[in-house]
Amino acid sequence: MKDIMNKEVDDRKEDAIVTEKQLLPVQLNVNGKQYILHLEPWTSLLDALREHLGLTGTKKGCDHGQCGACTILIDGKRINSCLTFAVMYQGVPITTIEGLAQGDKLHPLQQAFIKHDAFQCGYCTPGQICSAQGMLNEGHAYSRDDIHELMSGNLCRCAAYNNIVKAIEEVIETGQTPDAV
């Protein structure tokens, strides 16, 4: 796969698939990098990330906003990226799982997830971690029950729930909650 992380991307300019009129130029700010894409207006933000930017860390589990696997952070707020269109997020800071670690230094939630075995197959994990960060940003999680409740939009079929909660609790308890991302 071509390296698209560090340069502007213009995948579609030459091999226009539908008529030029239907493709909209979209400028996305993902994990601190600027990208210009040409997208159908109905391309979901999730598909733009996965199919057009190659950022496949954000997962598709249902495409209907029912599972939370596609959770990302928009200006620090967690959303289901499958339920919204890419064209709506021009210039807004978007953070995906790929943007949480600082180089080789894992984000505290990522470290805690590994330590507490907060995943098995790993497919819901990026969404769980982004959702957890979004929940921490919201600032309403005061107890284990709160975390269980506020994380209930993120399904895990392996049912690693208790370990996910332990990982989040540890990040809260050790006060390593990073600044809102």
């Binding site: 996965r50 496949t56 860390g57 997962k59 790929e98 949480l100 997830f113 590994i114 075995d117 790993g122």
Partner: peptide, 21 residues
């Protein structure tokens, strides 16, 4: 022991069947 594939799974670099291109 913590999973040896843990880092790949928490950073989104673990690639699943529909993510190859």
């Amino acid at each position: 022991i913590s999973r040896v594939d843990g880092v790949a799974k928490v950073t989104g670099t673990a690639r699943y069947a529909g993510e190859y291109t």
